[in-house]
Design a protein around this nucleic acid. Structure first.
Lengths: 113, 113
DNA sequence: GTAACTACTTACCATTGGGTAACTACTATA
DNA sequence: TATAGTAGTTACCCAATGGTAAGTAGTTAC
């Protein structure tokens, strides 16, 4: 096995680790929304307009487990919950930027709109 | 709706366009493998070791439809098919790089291995 | 007391994504 | 004649993904 093949294999392994975490219809959109500042459940639901509370709750939990976001409960009246990015979450900004850059490019080239 | 909210909405739309194309367990790995040079069906199958011929065939078709890869048939004996990146495919390199950088970071921080 | 807002949870259902195994069709080689 | 290599296709199945609708629990405003 030569250098190139070895490097290819290694990169494929890393990409699959990353993909497991960012897979799914909603995870990156949620992280993206949180790059605009900390938000509450209802705010996220309004921003990501067609996500259901079930999916939002489920995906927030998964992101929390993967240490990408933090859930903070403020014991005020009424009870308020705030979601924010962890340092690991913030470290996704460049990745998100590149997805947006490529997405805009793709839209222009293929979707033609 | 203020500037910030507007920008957030727009970025969310773009991210979802991009995600539709790169979603799934195999698409990015296939593109990544092809950044190492043009490859044939069997080579891809060997590189991405646990992909089945069904999934490889299916995902190659989807990538071709989205103008990310090109399928070239060489009418030699035996018949040889080569897959390569289009310019749009090549434009994903930065995105892939960032995924690899983040993936390595994530591995270090969370998977601890 | 009732409606509305906070943040969810639960039950149920349909679709899709992906896996396995076998099969096709053609050619070259032993 | 049989085996192996080219590049897939097809049928069948299961589990995960995601959607819908309704319910929960507490507080506040009318």
């Amino acid at each position: 096995m030569n250098q190139k093949t070895h490097s290819c294999q290694q990169k494929l392994r890393i990409s699959r680790d990353a993909l497991e975490v960012i897979q799914g219809k909603w995870r990156l959109p949620i992280v993206l929304a949180l790059t605009f500042g900390n938000k509450r459940f209802g705010e996220l639901q309004r921003d990501i307009s067609d996500i259901s509370p079930k999916m939002l709750s489920q995906e927030l939990k998964a992101l929390e487990e993967n240490k990408i976001i933090t859930r903070t409960l403020y014991d005020s009246m009424p009870v308020v919950v705030e979601y924010s990015l962890t340092p690991l979450g913030h470290s996704m900004k460049k990745l998100l930027d590149e997805i947006l850059i490529w997405g805009a490019h793709f839209r222009k080239e293929v979707l033609k709109s």
